[in-house]
Nucleic acid binder design. Structure first.
Length: 578
DNA sequence: GTAGGGTTAG
């Protein structure tokens, strides 16, 4: 017993790899290593403590003559949270072949590895094994399983696990709600949150994080407000993470003022993320000055801006057209010891490119210490299209093709550059390249927010909505009235072997137009219409919605992938600079 | 040879 206490205290002192090696030597020389009950604890310490070292743990493991289930578990747990989670899976397979029994914990760690490695088919295998072992009554394990399915992208499988659970606890609900929220099924996440409350559960801080994230995605202000009220009632706002999520929700719903009022009245301490969330809120709304002000202010408040803070502020300069400020910021961050990553470079290239300073943008690219990514070349290509720079557009396109880009937008941009120069032969070449490469479009979709408490989703050319007929009739009316207003569709945005009229239809039935049309027919005159789009808004939709805001006298707010566009009386808050 | 494992904002 005395030696047990001694060993425990030795284990506690094991805060470095050197100490661990000393302890290992001690255990071996005193002959306690093979049999000592604390051996597993020691192994665990090596495998998962911050001071630990996985390869050392594996080395120790190999010295064990007959490793127990717990010895295996210790190493598996370490591997599952290591940078190489696939290793956990090979160890799991090795263990399955051996004599030691796999227990629920073994499965749990192996599944964790699957989640991190995004290994779906391995997860299904472990799933069937755990059923064979009779572990399906273990709700912790099933929650892990559910989470793995959600994280590897099979929400239906996750839902099935959830539905079939013999018993659930709050974490099971939370895992399912977050899974839906993060798996782009935010509508269902909110529905499940409501069902949970109906069934008498009391959501905790983790639950509201998932639900708030869903509201942010959907711009679901009313649901978000209800959750915010609940947060206040239940005093969950003592948690800074929850406050950050509330701020983000208001910002993504377009209510920066509300986000700011939550920010100033927080009773808990603000974190770096709190400040970054606010800066992003200003960026999204095109308020570059406020974003820059907050960047200064956070430092005064004792929170040093990190790479994300600078990226958000750069992004704000970008959206607000503050070119000089952005360039200055980029230099400043380096002086402050924050190393720019590829996204910062991309942002500055975008900033300069949009402003037509393509030469300078290229100088930045050439000065980069890392390889430019796809996004960076895409924004350069976009700038070349805007400013008619064929030579640079070709270079950027070449890079994109080299990098294996299969994005329709990239090809369309290059084709547009050629078309603007009447280089029809080259346009044809691009079209052929698209055909050979089987280029696919990322499907665009839009949400129109909270009409009669419901959120409606539209995809391009959608005809599935119950009011589809009226929506299309409205679009025809819009087209007719917009033409009278001098509008002509920018059909060169479409690159298909179809006639002009069809081209116009492709544009006319973009998801954001469908959503706006539905908003017009289903809300009363003067009600603002809010739409959220998964991609950037297209030039044609931007032009049409400006006109709609004028002829129908409606305020229309579109949140696209990058920012808010507020259309009112024929103009957009982005001043056509986006 | 105990308990250990699950859900979490920018």
């Amino acid at each position: 017993m005395a030696s047990q206490c001694q060993l425990d205290s030795l284990l506690q002192k094991c805060t470095s790899l050197i100490r661990m090696k000393q302890l290992q030597a001690h255990l071996i020389t005193t002959g306690k290593f093979q049999f000592h009950p604390s051996r597993t604890k020691f192994l665990e310490l090596c495998a998962i403590s911050p001071a630990g070292d996985l390869s050392f743990a594996a080395q120790i493991f190999r010295l064990i003559e007959t490793p127990s289930t717990n010895d295996w578990n210790a190493v598996l747990r370490g591997l599952s949270q290591s940078p190489e989670p696939t290793q956990a899976l090979s160890w799991y397979r090795a263990m399955s072949r051996g004599p030691q029994k796999v227990d629920a914990l073994t499965c749990s760690f192996a599944l964790k590895g699957c989640a991190r490695a995004l290994a779906f088919s391995e997860a299904t295998q472990i799933h069937s094994q755990l059923l064979r072992f009779g572990f399906e009554v273990d709700i912790l394990l099933l929650t892990t399983l559910l989470d793995v399915y959600a994280k590897t992208g099979d929400l239906d499988a996750a839902q099935k696990v959830f539905d079939n659970m013999c018993k659930r606890d709050i974490a099971s609900w939370n895992a399912m709600i977050s899974g839906l929220a993060q798996g782009s099924r935010p509508n269902e996440a909110i529905a499940l949150f409501n069902r949970m409350k109906d069934e008498g559960w009391r959501p905790n801080e983790v639950t509201v994080l998932g639900a708030l994230s869903a509201c942010s995605q959907l711009g679901a202000l009313k649901h978000g407000q209800i959750i915010h009220a609940y947060v206040v009632d239940e005093k969950l706002d003592t948690n800074v993470i929850v406050c950050n999520a509330v701020i983000d929700m208001y910002a993504k719903c377009g209510f920066v003022d509300k986000a700011y009022s939550v920010f100033v009245s927080m009773s808990c301490n603000k974190s770096l993320i709190t400040w970054n969330t606010m800066i992003m809120a200003f960026a999204m709304n095109g308020d570059g000055c406020k974003a820059l002000k907050f960047l200064d202010q956070m430092a005064l408040d004792g929170v040093n801006p990190d790479a994300v803070s600078y990226l958000a502020a750069l992004c704000a300069c970008n959206h607000a057209g503050l070119v000089e400020d952005g360039v200055r910021l980029f230099d400043m961050m380096k002086e402050c010891g924050v190393k720019p990553n590829v996204k910062h470079y991309g942002s500055v290239v975008d900033l300069l490119g949009r402003a037509g300073r393509i030469r300078e943008a290229c100088d930045i690219i050439n000065s980069m210490p890392m390889v430019p990514d796809v996004v960076l070349w895409q924004s350069l290509l976009g700038a070349c299209k805007t400013h008619g720079n064929v030579e640079m557009a070709e270079k950027a396109s070449r890079k994109l093709v080299e990098m294996g880009s299969n994005s329709c937008g990239d090809f369309v941009l290059l084709s547009n550059v050629y078309a603007a120069q009447q280089r029809w032969h080259d346009v044809g070449r691009v079209r052929e390249a698209m055909r050979i490469r089987d280029v696919r479009k990322v499907p665009g979709f839009s949400y129109t927010t909270e009409i009669d408490g419901k959120i409606h989703k539209f995809v391009n050319g959608d005809q599935s909505h119950p009011n589809s007929k009226e929506i299309y009739a409205k679009l025809d009316e819009i087209k007719f009235r917009a033409r009278a207003y001098g509008y002509a569709a920018e059909t060169n945005l479409v690159l298909h072997d179809i006639g002009e009229e069809d081209k116009e239809n492709v544009l006319n039935y973009h998801s954001e137009k469908l959503a706006v049309a539905y908003g017009l027919i289903s809300t009363s005159d003067g009600t603002p219409i809010q739409v959220i789009k998964n991609l950037r808004i297209c030039v044609d939709c931007h032009a049409v919605i400006k006109i709609i805001s004028n002829i129908y006298n409606r305020e229309i707010i579109v949140r696209d992938r990058a920012r808010f566009h507020r259309f009112k009386e024929g103009v957009c808050s982005c001043r056509d600079y986006w």
